[in-house]
Amino acid sequence: MAKNVCIITEYRNGDFRRVTHEVASEGRRIADALGTGLVAVALGSGISAKAPDLGKYGVDKVYVVDDPALEYYLAGVFVPVIAEVLKQLDPAAVLLPASVDGRDLGARLGARMNVTLLQDVIEVVVGDDGKIKAKWPMFSGKCFAWCEWADGVPPLLSIRPNIMQTQLLDESRKAEIEAASAPIPKPRASVLKYELDTSGKVELTEAEIIVSGGRGMKDAANYAMLEDLAGQLGAAVGASRAAVDSGWRPHSDQVGQTGKVVNPNLYIAVGISGAIQHLAGMGYSKYIVAVNKDADAPIFTKADYGIIEDLFTFVPALTEEVKKLKNS
């Protein structure tokens, strides 16, 4: 029998993270192209109850390791357990999320199993000969590279969140479950604190819409205006390096080559000039709107829609119009 394609899930706070469904859907597509099944390796505390739901996204069978010691991701625990399960499964290819933890896990797993991980993949093709090729953005997206693995090396790839289409196959489809056996090592590292923002703030790398402010915002307090607009749109708020360096926004909001690389459907750049490092981080957005009072700002050369206006008058007007739309 042909070897299966395998995904590694990411589970947090009692549920699979959305990116897991994206990875499953892409895994299903690859498995179909190879004419094989799709299996998953799922680690977590209390994960067994949810695991059958992965069937909806095309997973045939889930190998579950359900243990209280797997509440939080720690490389020292997850890597040996997953490596052991994968050794038994001997899959044709392994996919996992290029999330914060997934990237960490994948790199270490690749080294342990002596296969090479390709991180942050945005496109996968399967040739007629069954060979897998994958594409990833280098230089924060200023250039793309296609890669292939040597014969006999099973591809290991982490999939960038928010890129692959989620395919809900069938609401009632259930995956088969099997408890996988692997010893769970005692970690040398310990989790002192695990703090999640419960305000419902949208994570930049997973946001559909981002409203981002730059030096033009002039002051930390003025971001309330962007928060307002973002609230109406269900958007996340981002920032340029200039705004972060000025201390107006936390570093975790920085978009760009030394910040986050984002891929929303809509990116609204407010008071941002469009430096090459900033463009590198958001150039992959489906639609870009620029609001800037300087008609010569480079951001306008990349924007689908440009507004040459003072942001302090335009942003409130835009928020008003969005409100009207939402109420109509």
């Binding site: 280098m138 793309f144 590279a145 292939e148 040597a150 008609a295 990349k302 924007a303 829609y305 040459i308």
Partner: peptide
């Protein structure tokens, strides 16, 4: 002995300036 190799590079599609709403 490489286990992975780059087969080709490509540049992203050029984004063009869109409309200025005026």
């Amino acid at each position: 002995k490489a286990r992975i190799r780059i087969t080709s590079l490509e540049l992203p599609p050029q984004r063009k300036a869109g409309k200025i709403i005026d």
